[in-house]
Design a protein around this nucleic acid. Structure first.
Lengths: 146, 146
DNA sequence: CGTACATCCTCTAGTGACTAGAGGAGCAAG
DNA sequence: CTTGCTCCTCTAGTCACTAGAGGATGTACG
């Protein structure tokens, strides 16, 4: 039946780039597949599913370590899903926080751009607001990056 | 008058950490200040303003290279502020895009967490949705990180 | 004046999640 | 047979810092 998928094909099918797949193997996120006679990696359906799971999780902003936990949970379906729930909930809280920060940032940027007189730097609101923190309504404790 | 601010004080005043200030000097974002007899960096008000400008720009999510351009514009106030406007506008578009992605992501995570039966992994919506991309309403071309 | 301690110095290496490139081998089609 | 694609390993680079080693200097107190 399944006589081995090449790295290129598993890459196409999963949407994960070839060097990234090798990287995932290197950091132990994806098991090392068997090799062909010519030393090429030979994947199967399980690997493709795992890669798709990984890609999807990354798209949703989960970190590699979180994905590691999620994957290990998936492998033991008898265990409580409390951990998975906790990871997703924490992640949800992060996302909400990020949206709030970015929305404040959006308003500030709009104010900057709208205020720009399109003239000389001397009267430029953009430079102005950046230079003088006091004129700014946006105060990030720290905008966490996704 | 101003007889030199220590790196610690300029750090406190600007909100930029000491090693980060040295890093900014290293990459040429902040000019190398004169040194005291004992080889300590000696800053002035201009440096403090520049650092505050940098910190504020970073908080607003501008990249170092963008800040470099912004700073060079600030130094030549006679020039058209078109460039500054362009940078801010592009940045604003990015931010809007990010908010859209994150909002979709938020809904998806809520769906995951709410659907979680708090039982065994077998019935866990979190794992379920992650595993099967088809069940997911969230499709990121790529969620750009802030 | 001594001593404790904070602050400063330089330098190297590590972070996360990849991405790029060198240099070479295998494989399939024309 | 040769062209061109995919694959292999390995190292190093990206971004914006952060951490830590190992040592010098400056300051406050007794």
């Amino acid at each position: 039946m399944s006589q081995g998928i090449t790295i290129g094909n598993v890459s196409q099918a999963s949407g994960v780039k070839v060097p990234t797949i090798r990287y995932y193997e290197q950091i132990g996120l994806l098991p090392s597949p068997p090799r062909t006679e010519g030393n090429r990696r030979s994947y199967d359906e399980r690997d493709l599913e795992r890669l798709t799971f990984i890609r999807h999780s990354r798209e949703l902003g989960f970190e590699i370590d979180e994905i590691r936990t999620l994957l290990s949970l998936q492998d033991r379906p008898d265990v409580s899903c409390e951990d998975a729930d906790a990871i997703a909930s924490r992640h949800l809280a992060d996302v909400k926080q990020k949206i709030a920060s970015l929305t404040a940032l959006q308003h500030e940027l709009e104010r900057m751009v709208e205020g720009c007189s399109h003239g000389r730097v001397e009267d430029c609101k953009v430079i102005d607001i950046l230079a003088d923190h006091g004129k700014c309504r946006f105060h990030a404790d720290h905008v966490p990056h996704l």
